[in-house]
Design a protein around this nucleic acid. Structure first.
Lengths: 149, 149
DNA sequence: CAATATTTAATTGCACACAACTAAACATTG
DNA sequence: CAATGTTTAGTTGTGTGCAATTAAATATTG
């Protein structure tokens, strides 16, 4: 009859009973697990996410990147400028709407995909999860993400 | 016979097939969901996590805080100094081991607990999850956290 | 016990995140 | 079409995160 979960106001305030903490911690630890692979490519984790989108779409506006990554221009503009400096991508105004900035993949950025294509498999190993567990967790998180946005 | 998950190297590089992205995004969106409640208390999210531990333990060394939150002194030291300035906690060297710094809850910090004690319930509502779902996800994340640390 | 190694915080430097604000381009509306 | 409103990036300032280094205190070891 013992219930492992505690629901009194005080117990709800314990770190171990929070959902937010494991989310926060796992997110950071997973980023850290990517580190050795990304560092070899001179990439940061959010830069890698930008590449995941550009490798698929070739060209995206800052607004579209922001919508997909849930990041605003305050984060993206400096990040994209750093990536531009490395010749990975180009930034240019859309001639049909000068408010928009189009981010385009450059050859050096396209080249990186070859070096990055095995990262997901390697990380999967790091996490030690079955494909079923993996997809279950991804589905749950995506559902939660929809509710939070 | 259709398989919704794609396992070719190219598909594994799509953002939508990553586990890391929903983790990263949910973590940030959840932090943002805490924002209005924490802002009312002049707290940031990691500062709130420090309080969750201090409300339970009263006194902890920087090392212990770091072990529990998976943060290092490079993050904690400036964060704790800001909290010290607000008179929420004290920082003093341990007389028995001058290397350690003991973080102690001050009255103003203890007071905050009263104002914060309903935050978890309110967030639970925000997430729109059943208690079962909540605990299932928390368990999965904690397992993953163990593997990653 | 002296030399060396380890532990613990603090510091430095860089890259996010994000709120708040600005400025330019475009859209709407009377 | 002029005035107003909206959209889009960029800017500024603050607060994390974290790797790498430093410095002081303690532990270990020959």
């Amino acid at each position: 009859m013992e219930n492992t979960s505690q629901h009194s106001p005080e117990d709800l305030l314990k770190l171990e009973n929070q959902l937010c903490f494991p989310l926060y911690a796992v997110s950071r630890m997973l980023t850290k697990a990517y580190q050795p692979y990304l560092q070899a490519l001179d990439l940061t984790y959010p830069q890698y996410l930008v590449f995941l989108l550009l490798w698929e779409h070739e060209e995206l506006t800052v607004k579209e990147l922001g919508e997909k990554l849930l990041l605003d221009s305050g984060t993206l503009t400096p990040l994209l400028k750093r990536m531009e400096q490395k010749q990975w991508l180009s930034r240019r105004r859309d001639p049909r709407d000068e408010r928009s900035v189009i981010i385009g993949l450059l050859p050096a950025g396209r080249e990186l995909q070859k070096a990055a294509c095995h990262i997901p498999e390697q990380l999967l190993g790091h996490m030690g999860m079955s494909v079923t567990e993996f997809e279950q967790l991804r589905t749950q998180l995506n559902t939660l993400l929809t509710r939070l946005t």
